[in-house]
């Protein structure tokens, strides 16, 4: 079962040192998940100020600056994992550094058959 772990924190609350520590801890967690066969993908995101929102209405592209919604905590990164059940996903979510500062939202994926895989793309 695949889960997307979305990490929301207050961007302003991170000091450079805390950010560095977070990256180091997250990287280690990724390697640990990888050895257990639970790692699919993970990445930090640039601040919400770098976000662009795109809507298509009546065939016309509407481009706006900023994230989909302005909130006190912003989406700052994600993990994509493959584990047996929600309890295992929660256990991993609780170990993400951002969970101690903000919130990690755990979303199960709907797995569609017939989608291209990363290996297909490489060929």
């Amino acid at each position: 079962m695949k889960y997307l772990l979305l990490i929301y924190t207050d961007e302003a609350s991170w000091t450079p040192a805390a950010r560095e520590q977070c990256v180091a801890d997250s990287t280690q967690l990724c390697h640990e998940l990888h050895t257990r066969g639970q790692y699919l993908d993970a990445s930090p995101l640039h601040p919400a100020a770098a976000a662009t929102s795109v809507r298509v209405r009546g065939g016309k592209k509407l481009i706006t600056d900023g994230p989909f919604v302005e909130t006190t905590e912003q989406l700052g990164g994600y993990f994509l994992i493959d584990v047996a059940n929600l309890d295992e996903a929660i256990q991993i979510a609780a170990r993400i550094p951002g969970a101690a500062k903000g919130t990690v939202e755990v979303r199960p994926l709907i797995e569609l058959p017939g989608l291209p895989t990363t290996t297909d793309a490489a060929l």
Binding site: M1, A84, N85, L86, D87, V106, P108
Partner: peptide
């Protein structure tokens, strides 16, 4: 069903 909440007695730690 969708979030696959396990049908299990939690581990001792939990």
């Amino acid at each position: 069903r969708d979030a696959r909440i396990p049908y299990e007695v939690p581990s001792l730690a939990d």
